[in-house]
C-alpha cells in the first residue's frame, strides 16, 4: 500500500511537471520547471501543507524535487524555532546537506572517472 501511494503521488508530481513543460511556451525551460517545483515545495512546506503529503506518500513526496524544497524549508523553520535568527540561516542548507554533498562528491568523481559519450 505504501508503495502504491509512493508510485501514484510521485508519478503525479512528475506528470504535472511534464504538463508544465509541454503545454507552456518554449520560454518555460526544464530549469524553470525545476526551480518552480523546489519553490512550490518550500512554500507548501512553510504553510504546513507538505508534511501531510509526506506522511501519506513517503518517498512519493520526498524523492521529487518538491521534497527537496520541503526539506530546506523545514530546516530553516525548525532552525528559527530552535536557534532564532542564526537558525534561519543555518537550518535550510544543513537539513539538505547530505543530498547536496552527495551530488557534489559523486559528480566530481564521475567527472574524473567517466568520459561523456556525446
Amino acid at each position: 500500500m505504501l508503495f502504491l501511494k509512493a508510485f501514484l503521488v510521485g508519478g503525479f508530481i512528475c506528470l504535472l511537471a511534464q504538463l508544465l513543460m509541454d503545454l507552456t511556451s518554449h520560454k518555460v525551460t526544464p530549469a524553470h520547471v525545476l526551480v518552480g517545483l523546489v519553490t512550490t515545495g518550500a512554500v507548501l512546506s512553510a504553510l504546513g501543507l507538505y508534511e501531510p503529503l509526506v506522511k501519506f506518500a513517503g518517498a512519493g513526496a520526498t524523492v521529487p524535487l518538491t521534497g527537496f524544497g520541503h526539506l530546506l524549508a523545514q530546516g530553516a523553520i525548525k532552525g528559527a524555532a530552535r536557534e532564532g535568527l542564526l537558525g534561519v540561516f543555518r537550518g535550510g542548507v544543513a537539513s539538505a546537506a547530505a543530498g547536496i554533498t552527495a551530488a557534489v562528491v559523486f559528480g566530481y568523481f564521475a567527472a574524473l572517472l567517466f568520459r561523456p559519450k556525446g
Binding site: C14, Q18, A59
Partner: peptide
C-alpha cells in the same frame, strides 16, 4: 504540440517507479 499524452504517461510511469524504488530504499 509535443505528444502530450504519451509524454505524460511516460513521466507518470517512470517518475512513479523511481519514487517506488525510493520507498523501497527508505
Amino acid at each position: 504540440r509535443p505528444p502530450v499524452w504519451r509524454n505524460c504517461l511516460w513521466a507518470f510511469g517512470v517518475g512513479g517507479l523511481i519514487c517506488t524504488a525510493g520507498q523501497g530504499i527508505v
